[in-house]
Amino acid sequence: MGNPMKIRAASKDGITEVKVLMSHEMETGFRKDASGAPIPAWFISEVTAKLGDKVVMEAQWGPSVSKNPFLAFKIKGGKAGDKVTITWVDSKGDTRTDTATVT
């Protein structure tokens, strides 16, 4: 289980803007270590976003999303006090879920 995500969710004029900063190496599999051995790929491959209990977005990522991925998106609806939940799964099967309260 990786480090916690930083999630900000703010509601304005009926739209909830969510910003997420994840903590992950996002290793491409194309790099080599100091001894010349290839470093195996290791990256977040799936991301799910929920408002309350409802899935609003599902993302599939490859290794060319930057290290410590940043993600921003907008949900129709949502109000202060609602919960936004983000879950990621990486290529090793590790997973992490964090929740933020909409402000």
Binding site: V56, M57, A59, G62, S64, V65, L71, A72, F73, K76
Partner: peptide, 20 residues
């Protein structure tokens, strides 16, 4: 392909990320 977002009807089609 770097990233793909399947968005439901509850989303504004406006997505930002960072890529290599």
């Amino acid at each position: 392909l770097a990233a793909l977002f399947d968005i439901g009807p509850d989303m504004v089609p406006d997505v930002t990320t960072r890529i290599k």
